[in-house]
Nucleic acid binder design. Structure first.
Length: 269
DNA sequence: AAAGACACCTGTCCGC
DNA sequence: TGCGGACAGGTGTCTT
């Protein structure tokens, strides 16, 4: 589920509750996430949370004794609750703070991750090879054009490739291509600079608006206070089994890279 | 280097 | 009501 806006929403929700807090206790109820949660995560008991940042869809928590690297996978979410509150189903990690609050990690499908590193998390083997942030200055028309020139595959596959640009998952790939009026099947190398510029702009606009609205909730995702994200009401094509909001023709659904693609063949070329 | 298939896991929804 | 199958927001890894 979580794409960049949902992870960003999560980070913003965590900061006021977690920054400068001291970890009193870490409980791992289910270590078998995408990778096993390392046992030395326990070393962080007694540590203080210094910063919380996002890189791609990873959440980086810097503490006084090392870094936690989190990923929400397809169905992960985080909540802030009182330490005494009961655990929900699929709650795999509980971190109690000395102030009586706690951070919970909930993930029904367990595609997420919690990793630990002592050194620079940006040098971690999962983080280091990632492409630029879509909202940063390194993601621009010159960069995207260079990436697309060498790619024969469909444009949707390119913008979902984290080595090209990070943070764009299936929802926002479909939606930004709709906004840019580009057919998701078009070979990346055959799209004009002008149209790629439109795509860059669309991706930016879309992600910024989604962040403002707290992300997209389809099923599992909640903000850290338990509220859903409200961007779902702004979706034009993703999950749309009816008509295009622009031209009223039926929205098409195809499969690309084993993922569903929704688009309007009349409005997108 | 690039492209595609597959794996990991649980819950939900739809048709019969 | 129950059962089987398709499908779901991600992405590292392996094979072509």
């Amino acid at each position: 589920m979580p794409e960049l806006p949902e992870v960003e929403t999560t980070v913003k929700g965590l900061r006021p509750h977690c920054l400068n807090q001291t970890i009193a206790r870490i409980q791992v109820f289910q270590p078998r996430l995408r990778w096993p949660i390392p046992e030395h995560i326990q070393q962080l008991e007694g540590a203080e949370i210094k910063t919380i940042t996002r890189r791609a869809k990873y959440i980086l928590m810097q503490t006084s004794q090392g870094h936690m690297i989190w990923h929400l996978g397809m169905s992960g979410s985080m909540r802030i609750l009182d330490a005494a509150d009961p655990s929900a189903a699929h709650e795999h990690v509980k971190i109690d703070f000395e102030n009586g609050q706690s951070l919970r990690y909930i993930d029904p499908r367990r595609f997420g991750a919690l990793l630990f590193t002592n050194s620079d998390p940006f040098q971690h083997k999962l983080i280091q090879p990632l492409g630029p942030e879509p909202l940063g200055k390194d993601f621009n028309i010159d960069y995207l054009q260079r990436q697309c020139e060498k790619r024969a595959t469909a444009i949707k596959n390119v913008i979902m490739d984290s080595h090209c640009v990070v943070g764009i998952g299936n929802i926002y790939a479909c939606e930004s291509l709709f906004l840019a009026a580009i057919n998701p099947k078009t070979r990346a190398s055959r799209i004009s600079r002008k149209r790629l510029q439109r795509l860059v702009d669309s991706i930016r606009q879309m992600l910024q608006l989604a962040i403002k609205q707290g992300g997209t909730t389809l099923q599992d995702f909640t903000q850290t206070d338990g509220q859903p994200g409200y961007f779902a009401q702004s979706l034009n094509v993703y999950g749309n089994r009816g008509e295009c909001p622009n031209c009223a023709r039926v929205v098409k659904r195809i499969t690309q890279g084993q993922r569903s693609t929704f688009y309007c063949s009349h409005c997108q070329h």
